[in-house]
Design a protein around this nucleic acid. Structure first.
Lengths: 321, 321
DNA sequence: ATGAAAGCGCTAACAA
DNA sequence: TTGTTAGCGCTTTCAT
């Protein structure tokens, strides 16, 4: 492989000059520029990115860690993050943490090792002690100290779900979801918004939650369905769970949405092929992904930022009246 | 940040010695080892990976490029690839090529720039001229010269689909899928296997294909359904398309599987929530992912390898009798 | 506008 | 077994 030295020699210029034209930095006469460019062309020279990263202490790679890419919402988010990162000239490193704190810490370590320039993380672990505000880190749906984060308006989404249920005539509603003993997640605000709105409107409501992660979702939902039989509206924490609940209710011959309305959260588009189509609160995944990258870029450049909370919207499907 | 120099100084040893204990290479006495380890501990020293990569010309990062991570089959595959890579001490860089050849070439360039140690690619572009056998590259479902690749037994899967259809009494079957004018994909063997088996058994069969990528899948399928009304068994190139076809047929009041059997290919588990459950030929995604990494590791170490073709299995759902 | 030279932090070859 | 040293390829002062 040709190096910058070869280029300089062939062009008959100094190594610094060659560097300058390669990086379009500083002053160079048109003439020398041309000579260098020709040499580059002739040698098929390609800068060694590793050497560059070494010198500049920045390798233009951002790490994304999330529980598992094999999950519709995350993979859609990852798609937009990568797209936006690419536009900014960065590559994306992907890590399925599977919830293991050790894998997450490994990536945080990479920050110190200069192996990544920044991190976008989706984590439900207790890692607050390992990170500081000075590190270029941005979280999704999680508020840790001053670390910036991006989320959708979970609280508003919860309220919205309640409102839809109420407006379509539901009398006794429920929230199904999870909670965490150890960390505070933005996701729990879905429940909060739902509950607050129910109280405000004086609507009968049941809260059915279990600690995250749920080992057996089917059993969890089944128990719910047999225990609460007089409900006519349910808001479920996420689409995956809502989807299973819908099928389960259908199998028990409960008419949806006539007897029971169900609203999910996320808006993952299993759309076309799913009957009945799920009514859900859609998160603006693309906006969130791009916004995540924008905040991170600012952090990498040492700029202060505040959290970005994006509005959600109700997507009417066939599981609400 | 503390450097290896600081460690050496504090431990009162040479820089090379420090390096040796850090890398567990060469001989070191227990005593000096202890001193160095203590210094490392005291300074909170973490090796600069970028400097290491620069020196060793290997940064332990593998790039995966695929059309889009936002696709069930790819995201599952990516999940296993990352998992296996992690076990081997590598990180995974992810690139959504969106089919753009330029983005793919960019990653191939990174190989020369030492920015990635190897590539796992899913590509339908004409990039054969940009790669050579000496590069550590492994493809999925694509045969380019001597470049190693991993795929499932597409041909066998096609045969299998025909057999299932035949055994459940179908008389006039069809294959729906795509083809490419420019590249030869392993995927097309699904059709081949299906067709060959149909001929062999003397079964009436129709082939309905359009050039990839299909712009409007809905229109494509709709046209098919209105054109061919006397079919009783269909094998569709992939689950996504099969799933849409099922819904479409159902909407036209065609009874599935009584009047029409449909078999997909992939085995993406939209499982739990999808009714009717799709009968499909399941690719061993996990095995494929891990096998991809194994082949690539060998290539990185300069070892010769041959393609790996993994067996598929029929997963009976509710769309076949 | 340009060239020379000093590192960046580390590994590996060599000498001791 | 250990210390010294020569680079790896590049960017960036600092003179000129």
């Amino acid at each position: 492989m040709a190096t910058i030295k070869d280029v300089a020699k062939l062009a008959g210029v100094g190594i610094g000059t060659a560097s300058r034209v390669i990086n379009k930095s500083g002053y160079i006469s048109e003439e020398t520029k041309k000579k260098v460019l020709e040499a580059i062309e002739k040698l098929g020279y390609i800068p060694n990115e590793t050497a560059r990263a070494f010198v500049t202490q920045d390798n233009k790679i951002v790490a994304l860690f999330l529980p598992s890419i094999h999950h519709a919402f995350f993979s859609e988010l990852a798609y937009y993050i990568e797209d936006e990162l690419d536009k900014k000239g960065y590559q994306m490193m992907l890590c399925n943490s599977s919830g293991q704190i050790e894998k997450e810490l490994q990536y945080i370590r990479m920050l110190k090792q200069n192996k990544v320039s920044g991190i976008i993380g989706i984590s439900y672990n207790q890692i607050q002690n390992e990170i500081t505000y000075s590190m270029p880190i941005v979280f999704v749906d999680r508020h840790i100290g001053e670390i910036p984060f991006v989320s959708s308006d979970n609280y508003g989404g919860g309220k919205m779900a309640l409102q839809v249920l109420k407006e379509t005539g539901c009398q006794h509603v429920a929230y199904i979801g999870t909670y965490s003993k150890t960390v505070v997640t933005e996701v729990e605000k879905r429940k909060q918004g739902f509950e607050d709105a129910a109280k405000q409107y004086g609507i009968n409501h049941t809260i059915y939650i279990e600690e995250d992660p749920i080992k057996d979702q089917t059993a969890f939902l089944n128990k719910f369905l047999t225990k609460f039989k007089d409900l006519d509206g349910i808001f479920v924490e996420n689409d995956n769970m809502a989807l299973e609940l819908v099928q389960m209710a259908l199998e028990k011959n409960i008419k949806i949405p006539e007897e029971l309305s169900i609203i999910g959260f996320d808006g993952i588009q299993t759309g076309k092929v799913l009957r009945p189509k799920l009514s859900t609160i859609r998160q603006p995944v693309e906006r969130m992904g791009r916004s995540l990258v924008e905040l991170l870029m600012k952090r990498i450049n040492g700029v202060l930022v505040t959290p970005a909370i994006h509005p959600v919207e109700f997507l009417k499907g066939e599981t609400t009246r």
